[in-house]
Amino acid sequence: MPDPVLSLNRLDARYGDFQALYGVTAHVNEGEVVAIIGANGAGKTTLMRSIAGLIRNAPESILWKGQPIGRLRADQVAALGIALVPEGRLLFPSLSVEENLIIGGQLGRRGPWNLGRVYELFPILKERRNQQSTSLSGGQQQMVAIGRALMSNPELILMDEISLGLAPVIIKQIYDALPGIVGQGMAAVIVEQDIAKALSVTARVYCLQEGRVSLEGRSDTVSRDEISRAYFGM
């Protein structure tokens, strides 16, 4: 079993006086794809934002390759090799598709991902590279957001609600691209509302319920009953 690249140790997270996560403990192994599931408001996006450095936490509550990163800024976390595809995509509306992608490569990390490789993964982006990014369809914008993250050549990619609001045919295109994203040893954490889809593409799953881990298991062995109990707290 590979060593964990990411470890969460009793992670608490707050927005001011509101506590969103309570003692979350989890890990991601090298090259592993892990799902995070749970109802709306369970803390999934807070978890992703905490890992990415958008929420400051206790240093030792988040370890990257054994080193504490819980207090690092988002740019420092990205420089270590962790990239976030945020919920809602958050593209730069005044920039073209290609300019959005280029911004993702500004860290200068070495690796296999560059413009040519992203266009190979998502050919439609090459056709639309000079268009304003927010003029694209929702699915194409999601491809830009994924490509922007890949341009930083991460070792871990965090994908928050990558299929939310997209047509089934576009969701299939994005998930069909997943093996090409993680095929060279990159680890991934995927937040997904479609439980069946999440389980089909991941090795392990964590369920959050009211900010706590209510279930952990292998994606191919957890039962529907276990998920239902963990999801709804029944």
Rank of each mutant, 00 (worst) to 15 (best):
P2F: 03
D3W: 08
S7Y: 06
N9V: 10
R10G: 07
L11F: 04
A13K: 05
R14D: 09
G16Y: 13
D17N: 13
D17Y: 13
Q19A: 02
L21W: 04
Y22L: 11
A26N: 13
G31F: 03
I36L: 14
G41T: 11
G43W: 02
G43A: 14
K44D: 00
R49S: 10
S50Q: 05
A52F: 02
R56F: 03
A58F: 01
E60K: 15
I62S: 02
Q67A: 15
I69V: 15
I69C: 08
G70T: 11
R71G: 07
R73Y: 12
Q76H: 14
Q76D: 15
A78E: 05
L80R: 15
V85D: 00
E87H: 08
E87S: 08
G88A: 11
P93I: 09
P93N: 10
S94P: 04
S96R: 07
S96M: 10
E98C: 02
I102S: 12
I102Q: 07
G105D: 11
L115W: 15
R117D: 01
F122S: 12
F122L: 13
L125A: 07
R129S: 14
N130Q: 12
N130M: 11
N130K: 15
S137I: 13
S137C: 09
G139H: 00
Q140M: 11
Q140N: 12
Q142F: 10
M143R: 02
V144A: 00
A145T: 08
G147R: 01
M151H: 03
N153S: 07
N153H: 10
N153P: 06
N153D: 11
P154M: 04
E155M: 04
M159Q: 03
M159D: 05
G165N: 02
L166R: 11
L166W: 13
L166P: 05
A167D: 14
I171E: 01
Q173W: 00
I174D: 00
Y175I: 11
A177Q: 06
P179D: 02
I181V: 14
V182Q: 06
I190W: 06
Q193I: 05
I195P: 08
L199K: 08
S200L: 10
V201S: 00
T202K: 04
T202P: 00
A203T: 15
R204W: 07
C207N: 11
Q209D: 13
E210C: 02
E210H: 14
R212C: 09
L215W: 13
T221L: 12
S223D: 10
E226Y: 12
E226S: 12
A230L: 05
F232T: 11
